[in-house]
Amino acid sequence: MNKVLGNKKAIAVYVLPGLILYTCFLIAPVVWSFYYTLYDGSPGIKWNFCGPDNYLRLFSDKNFMKSLLVNCKYILVVMAGQIILGLAMALMFHFWLKRFKSFVRTIVFFPVVLPIVAVAQLFTKIYEIQPHYGLLNSILAGVGLENLVQPWLGQAKTAFGSLCAMDIWTSIGFYAIIFYGALLDVSSDIVEAARIDGARAFQLLRYILLPLIRPIMVVCLVFSFTGTVKMFESALTLTNGGPSGATKSLSLYMYTIAFTYSKVGYASVIALVVFALCVIGSFFIRKLDKDITR
């Protein structure tokens, strides 16, 4: 028995190759980036030790502050969309839908698996105004709302909202399906009993359903938060951070600093900020959950 399941040679063969790859190409680089943060310039060319300068620079860098603000705004809007609308959708499917349940489930989840580049290209055309109206503008013009026709991606005040709308469109199915699964696990006896006791829809949600799906809610909040902190691909492909930085996230800013300006050290600091935000944020969400339950 022990000989078979404790076979050291076999364990080494099973674990080591994968573990080495994982260490060399994921964990080691992350650790390595701490070392980079202490240097100025790019490796090989003008690579000077500069101590904590890169960290201090964050506070006086206006562009960094701006992208931090954009990123935070994005986290708030998209998280709210994913969680609130996702839950609302799940509730509708659970209580209103009698037939075609698996059909609706399948359709709602589909945008989640689409490549973001394709989605962004599609939405670029939806928001288009030049050389001809895209889907949105042509519908607006068609129903007589010509004064709302505008370059959605071309102006700072609408580009951000357009980006959030696209991201909510692609990701909401994921949250709706998770919440829907959680609602299915709630015993229908409990819901029935509350209804007989005279609970209205809102009370049912507030006092019965939300407490019961709470663990899933926490997981969804963490997922949504870490996903939105990393904001990169959608902003890159839809607006490329523009117009005038209105959709420039931390990761996008980092990318430009690292690969356009070749300031590897400073870019590593920003990358670490993103990482830290993910860790601290999910820690606080879980802690908040514990505090409330207690």
Binding site: S33, F275, C278
Partner: peptide, 8 residues
């Protein structure tokens, strides 16, 4: 996040 590992 992959972005953190990307530069190194």
């Amino acid at each position: 996040p992959f972005t953190t590992a990307m530069i190194p």
